[in-house]
Structure formats: structure tokens, C-alpha cells
Design a protein around this nucleic acid. Structure first.
Lengths: 320, 320
DNA sequence: CTGTTAGCGCTTTCAC
DNA sequence: GTGAAAGCGCTAACAG
């Protein structure tokens, strides 16, 4: 029995007698034979591995994206190298080099904010897709959540709940995510022919800020009936203050968060309505882009803004 | 110029003339040559890759562990395949097979709770270390946080803060983590010659339960001055209720959480003292165990309980 | 010091 | 239908 024949038998090549194939398969099982992917890759010229290069320390964004990517690739077909650059360019270069020398078939770069990040450069010999944080080069392929639409969606939901005296409390204005969401909120208000009770309030992504902002809003606009928050953390702070001041949610004031971070939304009093960025879908899309590029399909460069979705809970519509 | 010589030059073998080496290195740079790890691994018999097999969907535990492991291996020296089995045994087997056929040098298995998990079996041809969730086979190597000591540490801290009328509110009694922590709390109380104001209260790992439990405790034991919580989520609920009932933290009641989950602890009012499981250290230790095993050092089977640490914030000691 | 040779484990022609 | 041979990109052993 030659090695070549065994190879054909195991790989389903059709130049093998059924009987022979049978014998080979049986033998392989007995020996618990598992083909050496290293060697297979060497001859095939592709490894079936992809690198995921991230700086998302907390893993809040990267994990759903990774899961989506795994889904798209098909579990076990493609494996993912996860590398954490910790926001350090040197370390990123280091990891990039390592990934390339391991001959990954593609690279997904995941940022921790939606601000554009520096491109890895055009001379990478494998396809690269930027997820969450788009690349600053229009020649690259990027996928990112549509924060503008998210902002719109949040405000429109409050309108649909019958609210008209609405404010927007959000995080660090240095983040483009904060500005995009605020733009969406303002545009939706404008389209509906209403004005927010106050200018959007920017500060930091924390519960503390949510508490402080809500305090001020309730003081100066006692008739306020809806607050769009730029993050779930801010929303948690807002909820606390409303409660402390003896008002109820959602009867007096409806509150909506952003990110749909489960640990925050489902533990809130009442549970928090929020905008979900569909990160798993984002990961899936990124993986598909890589896949297409590997197959040689021409990539459309530029940034794709993927749809987000509204998750309604008790902070905007009372549960009975 | 022969290929072999080039290889020697680039790998720092000492049988090359300095001038030749110089020439080779320069040429390599010009061509942006990066050696094919696949081929190197094939001949070396080891790949410099490790598999991280997890079922921790949220990534709350796995990310710090991954970071610790990366640290220990040295960034870029070893790369990590991250595979998420999603709590599904079939998928786990699938990933395991994929990892083995990729010839990883070792496997770290990360669970999402500290209850022992089924072993992958003794017939894996590479070293395996179980992190967070130990293996149920004493023949395996496991590292897990020392929840018992964590419970002790929490209670001792409240004692050190002068508290004596203390209760323990924790999560699902189906989790060994809940039981271990409770045992530690009780043991420390016993050693100090005090009794808890009530039996440890088990229910679920949620803020909702924390709120309900605190309500009951304050009702029945108005003089209570300290509460050890089994998780930060529970602690957040406890804090809310204490506040709602007009008592202050830490003056009237000191509260300590568990897990040191930043998003919960640093946003609390006041910020939450908590027990940190040192997961990054855990990851580092797991990686070192793998490393030793790869080097052929004999492994000590069994479960190692790694020390945890106390992180003091305003919920037990007032900040001025 | 340099180059030749063999071989890592596998797949793929291409004769037989 | 089967097997011998070449080669994927690299390193190690040995001759020159």
C-alpha cells in the first residue's frame, strides 16, 4: 500500500478502488491518524488560518466579532489566531509579522472605538479587513456599525412611545461614535419637527456622568419625558438619578441606552431598552469579505456601515 | 549563494563569514523576505502555537487569561488559536481535532465557572492545562482561583474595618464558586469568634437578587453593618437597596463584592471594594505549565488554587 | 566557511 | 487503479 494511494483514499479522490479506500479508512481510524495540517498547508499554499489583530483590551467588542467570524468560516474549517496589541504600535507590528510568517490567509483588524485607525499599509500580502474601527485609508476594506442610524433609531423609538420633550446625554466628544450618534438623534428630531429640550450633552462614558447630567436636566427641564443616552453606562446613571428624584421610568421619563451590554441592560431597574450594534453580524461580514478576497473575488474598498437594531425593554415600554 | 548558507546566515548559525551574512541579511530585507513558519515547523517538529479552547461566551474570563498567556509565552513567539465551543461538546471535539491536526504544541482549556469540567481525556498527544474550570480528572493539570481564600479575605477585610454584624449574600448554590466563597466567609467568621447575622443567602448572580436580599436583611437585622457579596452584580443590587432605604455606605453598612469587574465596581456609588481573581496571573501560570510540559519537565498533576487579591474602594473605607 | 544532500508529511502529476 | 517521483520551503548533517 503506497502512501500516495492512502492520501487519495482519505481525500476522496476518485481514482481509488472502493475496497482499497475501505481498508485505508479503517487503518487510519485504528491509528487515530490525523493528517498534519502543516504539511498539507505547505503544499496547498494556504493555511486555513486567519489572524485577528485587536487592541480591545476588555474584549467587549472583539469576542462577538470573533464568534461571528468563526460562524462564517465554519467551525474548525478555519482557525483564528487572536493577538492583542494592547494599543501599542510596536506590539502590533510584531504580531503582524508573526501572523504573516505563519502564512495566515487573511487578517481582521478590530479596534475598540469607531474612530478610523491608521492603516496597516497597502503592502500586506494577504487580504485585510478592518472591523469596528475602520481604516483611515479609503483603499482598505472596513466594516463598522452605523452609529448615525443608531442615533436616529433611538430617537424615533422615543417618538413612537409618544415622547416629545427629549434630551440626549452622551460620552466623550473625542469619539466619533458620540458625534455620529448625536447627529442621528438631532436629524431624527429635526425630521419629526421637534427640538431637543437641550443641546446634546457630551462628557465621558460613565455612570457618574449619566447621574450628573440627569440631575441637571431634571432640574432645568422638569417636564422632560425622554432621554437618549450614548451608552448603557450613561443610561444606568440616568436611571439612578431619575429614581432618586422620585420620578418613574418609563411613565414619567423613558430612557434608552446604547450598546446593549447585557450585564448592564438586563440588571437595570427597569430593564434597559438599548441599541445593539449587531457585532456578531459584523464579525460574520468581515469574515465573508476576507473569504471573498481569498477566493480572488475583487474587493470593494471603502467603509461599510452595518445596520444596528433596537432592543426594547422596560425602560421605554412598561411591562405588565 | 546557496539556500542553505542563507538559512544559516539568517538564523545566526556561526559557520558563516560576516561578509556573507551581511549580504544575505541585506538581500532578505530588500525582498521583504519572511521565513515560512509552516515549513520551519514541519522540520522542527513544533509549531510555536497553542490552542485556547473555551466555552466562555462573554469572554469575561477568557480575555485576561489569554493576555496572561500571551505575556508568558512572549508576544509573537507563540501564537494562540482561540476557539469558542459555546458550551457544546460536539463543537468542542471538533475544535480539539482541528487544533491537533494543526499540531499545536499545547492546549489551554478555559471554563466559565470554577466547577470541575469533564476532562478531554488522557490520550491527547500534547500537554493540556485547564484554567479557571479545573478538570474532573486528578491526572490532569488544572489552575483555578482560590475562592475559599477569597471568601475569607472578604470577611477579614470587613472585620478589619470594625464590622461585626455581617451577612453573606451570594449566587447560585449550584456553583461551587458560591459554596467555596461561602465556606471561606464562614470559616473566617468562626476564627474571629463571631457569627453571621444570618445564614449565607444563595439564589442567583444578579443585581435583582442583591436588591431583594438586602431588603430582607435590613428589615430583619436593622443593625447590620457589613455585607459580603458573592459577586459584583449582587453587590451593585445591595448598594442600591441600602441607598434606597436611606442608609449610607460605608458609614452604616460596608459592602464588598467579588470578581472586581471594572465596569461594575468603578461605576458604583460609592466605588465597590472587591476580590480580584488575578485572572491574568492565572493565564500566565497556565502558560508556564504548558511551557514546562513542552520542554519535557515532569508535570505535577492536580488542581492548583491560585491566590486572589483584595481591591479596596469606597464601599468599605470612605474616601476623603 | 560554503555547498550538496536528505528529509520533515503530504499531495499531485504521470507512468505503469 | 496503483505506485514511483518530484516538490511545497526550510534546516541539519556532512563533504568539500
Amino acid at each position: 500500500m503506497s502512501i500516495a494511494t492512502a492520501s487519495k483514499a482519505l481525500n476522496g479522490r476518485d481514482q481509488v478502488a472502493p475496497a482499497t479506500r475501505e481498508r485505508v479508512v479503517r487503518a487510519a481510524e485504528q491509528l487515530a491518524f490525523s493528517p498534519n495540517q502543516q504539511a498539507q498547508s505547505l503544499v496547498a499554499g494556504r493555511t486555513g488560518t486567519v489572524g485577528l489583530l485587536t487592541s480591545d483590551l476588555e474584549g467587549r467588542f472583539v469576542i462577538p466579532i470573533l464568534m461571528g467570524a468563526e460562524d462564517a468560516f465554519g467551525a474548525g474549517q478555519v482557525n483564528v489566531f487572536l493577538c492583542d496589541a494592547r494599543g501599542d504600535t510596536i506590539r502590533e507590528q510584531h504580531h503582524l509579522r508573526a501572523l504573516l510568517s505563519r502564512r495566515v490567509d487573511g487578517i481582521i483588524v478590530v479596534g475598540r472605538q469607531t474612530d478610523p485607525r491608521p492603516t496597516l499599509g497597502a503592502d500586506i500580502p494577504v487580504p485585510v479587513v478592518y472591523a469596528y474601527a475602520p481604516s483611515d485609508s479609503p483603499a482598505d476594506v472596513s466594516v463598522t456599525p452605523d452609529n448615525y442610524s443608531g442615533g436616529r433609531m433611538a430617537l424615533e423609538h422615543l417618538l413612537a412611545c409618544g415622547r416629545t420633550r427629549i434630551a440626549h446625554v452622551t460620552g466623550d466628544p473625542g469619539y466619533i461614535a458620540a458625534r455620529d450618534r448625536a447627529d442621528g438623534v438631532l436629524a431624527a428630531a429635526h425630521d419629526a419637527g421637534i427640538e431637543l429640550v437641550a443641546e446634546p450633552m457630551f462628557s465621558e462614558w460613565s455612570e457618574r456622568w449619566g447621574r450628573a447630567a440627569a440631575d441637571m436636566l431634571l432640574e432645568r427641564h422638569p417636564d422632560i419625558d425622554g432621554i437618549v443616552c450614548g451608552s448603557d453606562q450613561i443610561a444606568r446613571g440616568v436611571l439612578d438619578t431619575i429614581r432618586d428624584r422620585g420620578r418613574t421610568v418609563p411613565d414619567d421619563v423613558a430612557v434608552i441606552g446604547y450598546d446593549n451590554w447585557e450585564v448592564l441592560t438586563t440588571n437595570a431597574r427597569p430593564e434597559l431598552t438599548s441599541i445593539d450594534a449587531n457585532l456578531q453580524q459584523l464579525g460574520r461580514t468581515a469574515a465573508l469579505r476576507i473569504f471573498d478576497a481569498i477566493e480572488g473575488k475583487p474587493a470593494t474598498p471603502g467603509t461599510d456601515h452595518l445596520p444596528v437594531r433596537l432592543v426594547i425593554r422596560g425602560s421605554t415600554i412598561a411591562r405588565r
